[in-house]
Design a protein around this nucleic acid. Sequence first.
RNA 1: GGUCCUGUGGCCGAGUGGCUAGGCAGAGCUCUGCAAAAGCUCGUACAGCGGUUCGAAUCCGCUCGGGACCUCCA
Length: 493
Amino acid sequence: MIGKLRVVNSLTKQKEEFVPLNAPHVGMYVCGPTVYSDVHLGNVRTFISFDVIYRYLQFLGYKVRYVRNITDVGHLLDSGEDKISKKAKLENLEPMEIVQKYTNDFRQVMDTFNALPPDIEPTATGHLMEQIKMIQELLANGYAYESNGSIYFDISKYNEDRQYGKLSGRKTEDLLNQTRELDGQSDKRNPLDFALWKKAAPEHIMRWNTQWSDGFPGWHLECSVMSTKYLGEEFDIHGGGMDLKFPHHECEIAQNAGSTGKEGARYWLHTNMLTVNGQKMSKSLGNSFLPEQLITGNHELLERGYSPMTIRFFMLQSHYASTLDFSNEALNAAQKGYTKLANGLRLIKSYEYPQNAEGDLNQKQVDQINKICDNCHYAMNDDFNTALTIGHLFNLVKKINSIQTGQLKFTDIGEETFNRMKQTFIAFTEDVLGLKLESEISTDNLLEVILSEYKAAKESKDYDKVDELRAKLKAEGVIVKDMKSGVDWAFEE
RNA sequence: GGUCCUGUGGCCGAGUGGCUAGGCAGAGCUCUGCAAAAGCUCGUACAGCGGUUCGAAUCCGCUCGGGACCUCCA
């Protein structure tokens, strides 16, 4: 390993060396989507960021267990309605049909962006027993109370022993002065208290029977429960979007500490927001577009569509903790930049160091290339700085292109350096950043080009060429069909 | 209102005490049948004003601008 990995920990607001609890194992939990509608582009950014983090940890040799939940119950609207229930009523479907539909969509979208699936993708409804158990523990420890069939987390009690708000830097007194009126608040002893279990109103369709009531779990609980179950009471990394810091992650810490005595994650990583014209991209502002729309260009804010890898590249050109502004100009620039990088990848993959090459080493070139390779490691080690890494990769692209044009000879850099460059470039581009070649070349159109050559050869009675083309196409599984009506092709049977 | 982040060249975007980030756009050169690709070179960038320092885009203070969170959101 070259250098040491350092990460910015939201918990301490410091850049710290990353030391896993049980190396070579690393446990990472990321808050996943609530599957009640199409996945938001902001989610995509967050999950692409953590995909790179996951990939880089693996690249460093860690055995990572990546857990990302699917929220399929308990996430409420201001009105007190469950998001999934509401959608189910709207579309006249079972809640679980909604869940399945948007889970499928979500996975498909993430796959389009070449994000690896997590190792465990647990659902809230699949862990009700565990949630009930954690509520019982919190009750037993005195950090929760029952009220009208609902169970709430007791912030005042918790504050006697610990400090609620340490992650987001909030003070309970300040929070108390500015809470809004919410449904069911009258059952709480303190407006800051949050629901662990809510008694279901008669019209509420997602409900489970417990000793307290027919009800459903609170939104924050699932993450505490599932991270503890799969990663332990203490684990390495917890990630999510900045906007989950408060209250969601704060509540998670409180639940973990209140039930197990340990606060869960040791390193908290938060991704920043996507913006459009400087404003946060959000559903309520109407300035957001779906991943699908960004790819097809079917949205009034978009001049054209952009390929999935262009979008992934665009996102990785900024640091995950910075906001990233979307504009057609920036996306166009990314499109060209990505193509340049992809061409470099295609080239280097096709190159092998030639046998029997003779010539003197150019030490300056050797040193430069080795330094750039080192820099890729240093950049990723510095809190997963993908933007800087891409900068270094472009420096390697220049070297690769110079080999193609002959301005740089294989012998200038020697076999060892060439192989290191090739290995480093491919590993960082494909394995770490998850950027892959995507061909936008249409096979059909290429066939058209070849068939028109075929027709031309036939018309000029160049039968040697006709036979040659026909044979070559056959070798590729394409049969040329010479018909009275014209020339077409078919798959070889 | 409270808490916090941020302001980098035409655009995007890293960096955060002295060392060329990078991409896109632009200019020049090399190569070239044409066109392109590619390589090389260039533009005297760090919101403003003070301060600390041998030295600041980078630290501190103030001013101005932008934004986020404060129980919908990744």
